[in-house]
């Protein structure tokens, strides 16, 4: 019995669904950012699995994973800055209170 591609894809899918659940249900804005990081990592796991099992000689999936990691770092910095600004504005980090755009 060997490591299969399906194992990595399944664990990536499970991590992705957990991330979506946290993204939608959590009320703390910082936890929403953490859920986004979970989502990006799940996608990265998929990319790395494909890179190892389907394209092991020219590792393009790893290059994509590096780009995703770069974008994720930039996104985390900007997202946390936005959370800080909105916390100064509204004096709360409850996602239910951020309803300025609600019609």
């Amino acid at each position: 019995m060997q490591l299969q591609l399906e194992y990595f894809l399944l664990s990536g899918a499970a991590l992705f669904c957990l991330g979506i659940y946290g993204l939608i249900t959590s009320r703390n804005a910082v936890r929403v950012l953490m859920s986004i990081e979970l989502l990006l990592n799940a996608v990265n796991l998929n990319l790395m699995g494909f890179s190892n099992f389907l394209d092991p000689s020219g590792i393009k999936g790893q290059v994509f994973a590096i780009f995703v990691i770069t974008i994720a770092a930039a996104e985390a910095a900007v997202g946390l800055a936005i959370i800080l600004a909105i916390y100064r504005n509204r004096d709360t980090i409850d996602m239910e209170q951020f309803n300025l755009l609600k019609w």
């Binding site: 804005a29 910082v30 990081e37 980090i93 409850d94």
Partner: peptide, 16 residues
Amino acid sequence: LIIFAIMLVNKQENFA
């Protein structure tokens, strides 16, 4: 960075 953000928005908040 996330831990720093938690420290900066350090507010014990009981969500309504």
